[in-house]
Design a protein around this nucleic acid. Structure first.
Length: 396
DNA sequence: TATACGTGGTC
DNA sequence: TGACCAAGTAT
């Protein structure tokens, strides 16, 4: 492909002229239709690298709507990358609870510390140095470099893939088509306003070139768009079908003390819901048998009969598998000791715990209400949206 | 290259 | 309701 020679001089030749026309058209559109977002600097104002980075991490596979309240909470709690680096990791996880993909929160904290230790608390400006930081991959490195520092690179996310595969009617399916998309993107790298160009591409994908029913009539690229000419723009990008996960099942145990405290523990640092808080549960396996569920209950010195099976089940769908949990509740004496690796959490502190949504569903199903007042966007989980399905009989 | 990794919204 | 999707990264 062409060299991304950012010559301040003229731009000759044909392909370059084409690209110039495209980028200019998109920037004109952006100047009139750019979205106003909490982390986005006003037109013509330099962006804050910390805000750009924080927002980009939060926005990974996550909608703008879901991110906004968390972004506000984080910037209020940690105004600078140094504040974030100095915070306790658990405090970061607690504020992240509900946003999902918790490895992002662990990496966020590690990244802040790396920025302080390796770069004196100042975000590096090069793609290579950014890429070397925890939690920053190809996309985010390019996004921060272009948006915060006007480095002429194009971050390629789902929006950009959609826009570019439509623009060129790329027949190859993703993810196989990624190299092709990357070449197309590199051919568009503008030496002028790279940060605005990157954001314009994403705004275009988010508001005009949407997955379904794209608003082509409003698109600044409707003329050059190959897919639009063919009339099958909605069929791009092509995608290879993904296989679905196998249902896993398990039992969750909600132990309540007379004073309202709930027995909690922390999950292992890595893997599913790593480092997050949960009530004791059995393993989650396809071959789980409810018959033996109580074998996995925490030892609290109470009789097996103290555990009451809550009717119904809690269902939750992770990216790669659906989960079904049966819930047992027991009330135990206030002097009951917490088993190893568990602790009693006062009822009032529950809302502040690093509880992933599946655990909020479990507690809700057990009749334990958490006080909201967290970043927000949690009402659905705390009100037990899916009332609970009828108790199913376990096969076998 | 493929898989693990959350959650909420939409149609 | 089920599928698909949203500013991806790590291994």
């Amino acid at each position: 492909m062409t060299v991304a020679a950012p010559t301040p001089a003229r731009k000759p030749s044909l392909p370059v002229a084409d690209a110039t026309g495209l980028t200019a058209g998109l920037l004109r559109w952006y100047d009139r239709h750019r979205r106003v977002l909490p982390w986005r600097a006003p037109a013509g104002v330099a962006a804050d690298p910390y805000a750009v980075w924080l927002s980009e991490i939060m926005l990974q596979q996550t909608t703008v709507k879901a991110v906004v309240p968390y972004f506000q909470t984080f910037t209020a709690a940690f105004p600078t990358v140094r504040d974030l680096a100095a915070a306790d990791r658990d405090a970061v996880l607690r504020l992240w609870a509900g946003l999902g993909y918790y490895a992002r929160a662990r990496n966020l904290h590690a990244c802040a510390q790396a920025v302080v230790e390796r770069h004196g608390g100042v975000f590096p400006r090069s793609v290579a140095e950014l890429r070397a930081l925890p939690g920053i991959g190809d996309y985010t490195a390019n996004a921060v470099a272009s948006i915060a520092f006007d480095v002429p690179v194009v971050p390629i996310d789902g929006n950009v893939e959609r826009v570019l595969t439509r623009l060129h009617a790329v027949e190859e399916a993703l993810p196989g088509a990624k190299p092709r998309v990357k070449m197309i993107a590199e051919g568009l790298e503008p030496s002028d306003r790279p940060g605005d160009f990157a954001q314009a591409l994403m705004d275009l994908g988010a508001t005009i070139c949407t997955p379904k029913s794209p608003a082509c009539v409003l698109c600044p690229w409707q003329e050059p768009c190959a897919a639009r000419r063919r009339g099958d723009q909605e069929t791009f990008p092509r995608k290879t079908p993904k296989k679905e996960g196998t249902l896993r099942r398990g039992a969750a145990f909600v132990a309540l003390r007379a004073d309202g405290a709930v027995l909690l523990r922390s999950r292992p640092d890595t893997g599913l819901l790593g480092g997050m808080t949960e009530v004791p549960t059995s393993d989650w396996r396809p071959e789980f048998s409810e018959r033996d569920a109580l074998d996995h209950a925490p030892s609290l010195g109470v009789a097996r009969s103290a555990w009451r099976r809550v009717p119904g089940v809690v269902t939750h769908v992770f990216t790669h598998f659906p989960l079904e949990l049966v819930v047992f509740v027991a009330t135990v004496p206030t002097d009951a000791d917490a088993p190893a690796d568990t602790r009693w959490a006062p009822r009032d502190s529950l809302a502040g715990e690093a509880l992933p949504n599946v655990m909020r569903k479990v507690l809700s199903h057990a009749g334990v209400d958490l006080k909201p007042e967290r970043p927000a966007s949690r009402r659905a989980a705390t009100t037990s949206p899916k009332p609970t399905k009828k108790a199913k009989r376990s096969p076998r």
